[in-house]
Computed example of a mutant assay.
Amino acid sequence: MPRDKSQYHRPQPPADPNQEYMTVQETAYVLKCGLKWLRELLRARPELCGRNGERGRIVTDREQRAAIHAVRSAGDPRTGRSIPRQRRRPAARKPALATT
């Protein structure tokens, strides 16, 4: 019987936003970031998370969430830009030359 695994792919609100440990879904909800982005970050930087049991749930504590927030606020390391990118104004149009 297939189980619905959609709960693992969506951020979920925590029971208490100030609790010590949160799952990766609750962490994504609190930090207002995508779950896919957060999982990729935690895969690349395993010191920012812990596991509950052997190969169990990914959990974060307060210090790890603060470090994740600092990484996210630092910007995109690939481009050196802050996130989100600044929108550019369209270039002003030059007036057409008047012909007489």
Rank of each mutant, 00 (worst) to 15 (best):
Asp16Asn: 15
Ala91Glu: 14
Asn52Ser: 14
Glu20Gln: 14
Cys49Met: 15
Gln19Asp: 14
Arg65Met: 13
Ala96Arg: 14
Ala44Phe: 03
Met1Glu: 10
Arg45Lys: 05
Pro13Phe: 08
Tyr29Gln: 08
Ala67Asn: 09
Tyr8Ile: 01
Asn18Lys: 10
Ala98Cys: 04
Arg93Pro: 00
Asp4Ala: 07
Ser82Asp: 03
Thr99Leu: 15
Asp61Val: 03
Ala15Ser: 14
Arg89Met: 06
Val24Asn: 05
Ala15Leu: 11
Pro84Cys: 02
Pro77Thr: 04
Gly34Asp: 15
Leu97Met: 00
Arg88Pro: 01
Val24Cys: 11
Pro13Ile: 08
Arg78Ala: 14
Gly80Arg: 04
Thr79Asp: 07
Glu47Thr: 05
Asp16His: 11
Val24Trp: 00
Ala66Cys: 04
Glu26Trp: 07
Leu31Trp: 10
Thr79Gln: 09
Arg43Ile: 04
Arg10Cys: 09
Leu41Val: 07
Arg39Ile: 01
Thr60Cys: 12
His9Thr: 13
His69Glu: 15
Gly75Leu: 01
Leu35Gln: 06
Asn18Glu: 15
Leu38Pro: 03
Val24Ile: 15
Ala91Phe: 05
Leu48Glu: 10
Glu26Gln: 15
Arg93Asp: 06
Asp16Leu: 06
Leu42Trp: 06
Pro77Glu: 03
Ala44Trp: 01
Gln25Thr: 11
Thr23Leu: 13
Gly53Ile: 08
Asp76Gly: 02
Lys32Ile: 03
Ala44Glu: 15
Ala15Asp: 14
Val30Lys: 12
Val71Lys: 11
